[in-house]
């Protein structure tokens, strides 16, 4: 059902951008740039996706299709399979599929391309460290999430524990907001959540996080990047997208999107930024 709308929009956009396109010699009815979004976002905010799509279409002069799926895994699979030009994914799938992906841009948050993973518990809970969470019902965000799964497993591995036996039970909420809600409501006694999401939500909606507190923060880690297949389906589209992302802070509409995301800008960062995550993945894999 989405396809016809997109194609209509593609035609419309193509028509609107006809003159500059002709001037630049670009194809007038170009295939849309397909960008995958993972639930790393604060929420499936229609305003945000609308603004982002509008900015990217303006900046790339091409139709842009934003693709969202319930799990990281689905988006990652589509990306690796070359069905998407690029996707905003988590650091963990990026390092897991390192050989098949290339780095396009990394968001900069509070001046750094870094973020942390949090373990949160009920506000009134006395627990002092992750070791006190033994026997909990634990809410993970997504099995392909660094902050919402890998980090906590790595922290347990350091203690010689495995999450399957350490927690009495765990489940995935497939969204960082959902983890916060699960802990707030008491559905889970503790949860693994993206520190960026938690901080921004507590800034925008203090009541939503008021029943929780951060029990443990991880070290600073590479911010979830925008990645593309190592061999992109269309280099032109990818380059246009990369330029649009990196130039986002230089455009008013782009800044509006960044403001909604509470990000500074997108930057080109070295691959080494994700080494820590790769190390955690290796440790967890070794621990079984």
């Amino acid at each position: 059902m989405v396809a016809p709308i997109v194609s209509r929009r593609a035609i419309l956009m193509g028509t609107l951008t006809l003159l500059p396109c002709v001037a630049e010699g670009a194809p007038s009815a170009a295939a849309p740039i397909r960008v995958g979004l993972t639930p790393v976002f604060l929420s499936s905010d229609l305003e945000l996706t609308g603004l982002l799509a509008a900015y990217l279409e303006k900046a790339t002069a091409r139709p842009v299709e934003l693709v969202t799926r319930r799990t990281y895994q689905e988006v990652t699979a589509m990306l690796v399979a070359g069905q998407l030009d690029a996707a905003w994914i988590c650091g963990f799938p990026f390092v897991a599929h390192r050989s098949e992906l290339q780095l396009v841009a990394t968001p900069v948050w509070r001046g750094q391309p870094l973020y942390r993973a949090y373990v949160i518990v009920d506000r009134d809970r006395k627990a002092g460290g992750i070791a006190a969470l033994r026997g909990d019902i634990h809410a993970f965000s997504d099995p392909d999430s660094n902050s919402g799964f890998l980090c906590t497993r790595a922290a347990l591995a350091e203690l010689g524990e495995r999450s399957e036996t350490f927690f009495s039970r765990s489940f995935f909420t497939y969204g960082h907001r959902n983890v916060i809600e699960a802990v707030s409501s008491g559905l889970a006694a503790s949860g693994s959540v993206d520190g960026y999401v938690y901080d921004v939500v507590s800034e925008l909606e203090p009541k939503f996080v008021s029943r929780t507190r951060v029990l443990r923060t991880s070290e600073w880690l590479g911010f979830p990047p925008v990645a593309a297949p190592a061999s992109p389906p269309d280099a032109g589209r990818l380059n246009a997208l990369k330029a649009a992302l990196l130039g986002m802070d230089g455009d008013a509409d782009g800044r509006a999107v960044l403001a909604l995301l509470k990000l500074d800008r997108f930057a080109s960062e070295p691959l080494g930024l994700y080494e820590t995550i790769a190390a955690k993945a290796a440790m967890v894999a070794a621990a079984g």
């Binding site: 019902i137 009495s168 039970r169 489940f171 409501s185 008491g186 559905l187 889970a188």
Partner: peptide, 12 residues
């Protein structure tokens, strides 16, 4: 499995 008020009816 789940309840509207998980604090009075914990999972499991």
């Amino acid at each position: 499995i789940a309840a509207s008020d998980p604090r009075s009816h914990a999972v499991g």
